[in-house]
Design a protein around this nucleic acid. Structure first.
Lengths: 150, 150
DNA sequence: TATTATTTGAGAATGATTCTCATTCCTGAA
DNA sequence: TTCAGGAATGAGAATCATTCTCAAATAATA
């Protein structure tokens, strides 16, 4: 998977260039970790995966950086654990499933016609509450396969 | 509104009786605050509204109590502020709107046909991911009227 | 390569939440 | 109504995640 790694480095670099942020080792490291591990990660996971190559304070700073540039999404699990994931570059809209037993988090997408229905409904809600809606997310709570089988 | 208050006390008491929890002053106080102030409250708000009649540690304990009994819902705002609200006894399903500027949180409901569509979609997701889904929630993010007008 | 502003690392500081344990308070039995 | 025993509470210490501070290291740029 050497090739894959090179692609990740290239991509990380490109993300930073595109956003006019200096390319530094810590930033490349965090982006690399997020690119390599698809789907949401705990802060704790990122710290582990960086294997001491990154100060905890720097990691928080970098995460906040990337969040402000909308390059990553942040959300909370049921147990209030903060989860971090790269914002979907392709802009596919996805939602989250939380397992209330083991705390696992999965992304999912809904049928495009449901997305459209949701968007129509959101337009109604906008006018009803007289607000601007910038984004939406459907969150499911339940039991994953593994926990259900226990 | 004396009458209203009595109704609240009665209701708080009933909630505790129904759930076989001893009726204590601190629990009545927390329930009273949640019943009186419809919609989500910050932990901080509950502390203020209890005006020193309740130890902070007790308040957290009581909130966790009620949460474990599914009597209250807990969720996070954008700024990661924990919000507490009484679970809807009538079991009307509601969702949340977050204002990303001032942090306000509002509840809303969607048309029943959308709820039905969502439920159908969730059944599909259940089988696709082979999970048990216990609840769902739609979260909107945007700007409230006041912040928009600024 | 030298300059300068920016970023980083390390640990202190903060803030929210949980824990501990002595005291107080409910509840159910007499 | 009183009492005993178990459960809940208050106060503050302890913990945990996150942010802050500032001297040292690093990146962009000329």
């Amino acid at each position: 998977m050497q090739k894959n790694k090179k692609r990740q480095i290239k991509k990380s670099r490109q993300i930073l260039l595109d956003n006019n942020i200096p390319i530094t080792k810590p930033r490349m490291l965090v982006l690399g970790i997020l690119l390599k591990n698809e789907g949401p990660l705990k802060v704790e996971d990122i710290i582990k995966l960086s294997r001491g190559k990154l100060a905890v304070s720097s990691m928080y700073r970098i995460i906040n950086n990337l969040k402000n540039l909308n390059l990553i999404n942040e959300f909370q699990t049921l147990e209030n654990t903060k989860m971090i994931e790269l914002a979907d570059v392709k802009d596919e809209h996805h939602h989250h499933i939380f397992c209330e037993s083991c705390g696992a988090v999965y992304d999912f997408e809904v049928d495009s016609h449901i997305e459209k229905e949701l968007e129509k409904e959101i337009i109604k809600i906008k006018s009803k509450y007289d607000i601007i809606v910038k984004s939406h997310s459907l969150e499911l709570l339940g039991l994953c396969k593994t926990c259900r089988d226990k």
